[in-house]
């Protein structure tokens, strides 16, 4: 498709548009489908972007910290803790390491055991928080050294439970994009059906135009322009409603978790504005190919 014909399409050829009679249900169908699909695409986009942000945040926050547990008899705990801290300070790639105080450990357990917890009654290990530098440390090497010098130390770099969480968030993000692709495909299929219906309904018009010397491009243009503009209008309305719906969602909060964070942030609010343009592009391609396929069947 040449730049000239795209320009003609965008600027419009009122005469070309007029040769096709105003169609009935295909016009409403295209408007409705484009609007509904654009509405859904806004939510799919919001889901995908939110899941992406969550995956990035979890991956970043958890990757930078690790926990060292000292499971030692009470009389050896202080010595092993001191030895472990010494090893940690000597290990390249560790920015900071500190042993949690009894109060801090109690605060961590309070949500599960209540406020009147006495740590002396429970065999709670000593916890050491480790903050990773950039680049990070060699976890395997550190484990070997700890095993040799601090027998009660267990290094937990959160990999075990961090990976599934990040993978889940990333899957959710992929699912969002897949949903957008499906919406695009469904839109293309529906508009192709509508265009085919319009082309069939206007078979006699097309025949007359061919017989008086109209080129395929001229005939196709009349249909393509009509369906592209309808898709653009329908999708714009759908996006407006979709954005309204996203804005009506509760704002992100610590208590609400992931669901309250569903939406757009910053410049990502501009991304839904691309949906009407993409919808129009999908309609353009779908109608153009449907028209050319139909016209080639005519002599």
């Amino acid at each position: 498709m040449s730049r000239g014909s795209i320009r003609t399409l965008m600027l419009g050829d009122a005469q070309a548009a007029r040769v096709v009679p105003p169609s009935g249900f295909t016009a409403q169908l295209t408007l409705f489908v484009s609007g509904a699909m654009a509405f859904l695409a806004v939510f799919a986009l919001a889901l995908s972007l939110s899941a992406g942000r969550l995956a990035d945040r979890w991956a970043e926050e958890l990757a930078r910290s690790a926990t060292l547990r000292i499971n030692a008899p009470a009389d050896q705990r202080a010595a092993q803790t001191a030895a472990a801290l010494k090893i940690l300070t000597q290990t390249p790639g560790i920015a900071h390491a500190r042993a949690l105080t009894a109060e801090q450990q109690t605060a961590l357990l309070t949500p599960w055991f209540g406020a009147d917890l006495d740590l002396d009654d429970l065999p709670v290990p000593q916890l050491i928080e480790v903050i990773e530098a950039d680049p990070g440390y060699d976890a395997a090497g550190l484990r070997l050294r700890l095993a040799a010098e601090v027998p009660g130390a267990v290094l937990d770099d959160h990999t075990r439970w961090r990976r599934p969480l990040v993978e889940a968030a990333q899957s959710l993000r992929r699912l969002g994009w897949f949903a957008i692709a499906l919406i695009g495909g469904a839109t293309a299929a529906m508009i192709t059906l509508a265009a085919n219906a319009a082309l069939s309904a206007n078979a006699q018009v097309i025949e007359v135009l061919r017989l008086i010397g109209a080129r395929d491009r001229y005939i196709a243009q009349a249909f393509v322009r009509r369906f592209t503009l309808r898709a653009l209008i329908g999708a714009t309305v759908g996006v407006a409603f979709g954005l309204g719906g996203v804005m009506a969602l509760p704002e992100a909060s610590q208590e609400g978790g992931f669901l309250t964070g569903l939406g757009f942030q910053g410049l990502s609010w501009l991304l839904p504005l691309l949906i009407p343009l993409l919808g129009a592009l999908v309609a353009f391609v779908a109608t153009w190919s449907a028209a050319h396929r139909t016209l080639k069947e005519l002599t």
């Binding site: 061919r210 017989l211 008086i212 010397g213 109209a214 080129r215 395929d216």
Partner: peptide, 9 residues
């Protein structure tokens, strides 16, 4: 097809 259209004119 384009040439045929031109011919029909």
């Amino acid at each position: 097809r384009d040439q045929m259209a031109m011919l029909r004119r």
